[in-house]
């Protein structure tokens, strides 16, 4: 087929259209990156631009020197994301595996429970009341982790994954050898299901990293602000960071006056999405695979 190499007009138009869409996807990010490296006075004069009129790293210096708030939020977010993802992935797999076993007698009951939680939710206020008045986890680090541990949707995806990747015969023969259920799960099943668990882990990582809802509802303690919520506070009031800087003493008035407010707001955005964007090329294909498993196979 020598004609397949020919460059025809529709194909060129199509590439042009996709390049335009890609530009629309990336331009806002480039814009924010540009602003974060712009000189604050130049911004006031010329407006926002993806290409800094005058290059400056002041916004980043400000974030990392005068505000230990940022570093604390970063550490907290990493901790919550790592612990939350590890525990959540394990718990979901341990819940989903028995549901994939045809010989598990209580399967119907637990499947029903999962479906019920997908269909009906008590809503914000009862959830809030349970967290505050029953569990008393408000204003603790547990509030940032526990509410996201279980997701019925991920249980369904994992159940599908176990069904399609664990042959009954392996479990049968392990049982013959006298292995208990927990042993079978941790020494055999978990390894066979690793790709599925990796997908769930990636989704969960994004959930924890991108969360600010818990801070908006359950956690008011500034020591427990995560990155997203801190970014929200900075966006509504850049003085929030300088208020901490002001405690430093004599130079405070100077600092507040010279605050790189807009560029710092955008720099805050950049350091928040930085890890996601940098890791993106490596994990993107897992997501594509995961979505395909979850949505297309039964």
């Amino acid at each position: 087929m020598s004609t397949s190499k020919r460059i025809d007009l529709p194909t060129v138009a199509k590439h042009a259209a996709f390049l335009l869409i890609c530009f629309l996807c990336l331009y806002p990010l480039a814009l924010v990156l540009g602003i974060s490296f712009s000189d604050e006075l130049e911004i006031a004069k010329t407006g926002f631009s993806a290409i800094p009129a005058k290059f400056s790293t002041k916004a980043y210096e400000f974030l990392f020197t005068s505000a230990d708030t940022v570093i604390r939020a970063y550490a907290l977010t990493i901790f919550v994301t790592v612990v939350g993802t590890a525990v959540s992935t394990l718990i979901i797999a341990m819940f989903a595996y028995p549901l994939s076993r045809k010989d598990f007698r209580q399967r119907k009951f637990f499947n029903g429970t999962i479906i019920l939680t997908m269909l009906f939710s008590g809503g914000l206020i009862p959830w809030f009341m349970v967290c505050v008045n029953v569990l008393h986890i408000n204003d603790t680090i547990f509030a940032l982790i526990l509410p996201y541990l279980m997701s019925p949707w991920y249980v369904v995806i994992m159940r599908t994954f176990f069904k399609s990747s664990i042959p009954d015969s392996i479990i049968e023969s392990a049982k013959m050898d006298g292995a208990g259920e927990l042993r079978i799960f941790f020494s055999i099943v978990i390894h066979l299901a690793a790709p599925g668990m990796a997908t769930i882990a990636l989704f969960t990582t994004i959930t924890y990293w991108n969360d600010y809802w818990i801070n908006m509802t359950l956690v008011n303690d500034p020591m427990l602000y995560n990155l997203q919520f801190l970014m929200m506070r900075v966006q509504m009031n850049i003085q929030y960071l300088s208020a901490n800087a002001a405690n430093l003493g004599a130079a405070s008035a100077e600092i507040v006056r010279n605050l790189p407010s807009r560029s710092a707001q955008m720099a805050m955005t950049i350091i928040t999405i930085g890890p996601i964007v940098l890791a993106y090329p490596f994990f993107q294909r897992f997501f594509v695979k995961g979505i395909t498993i979850g949505s297309l196979k039964e």
Binding site: T113, S121, G122, W127, M129
Partner: peptide, 13 residues
């Protein structure tokens, strides 16, 4: 986890 965060709130309606 499911009981506490999804089912218990159902009774809170």
């Amino acid at each position: 986890a499911l009981f506490v965060f999804s089912i218990l709130p159902m009774f809170g309606v």
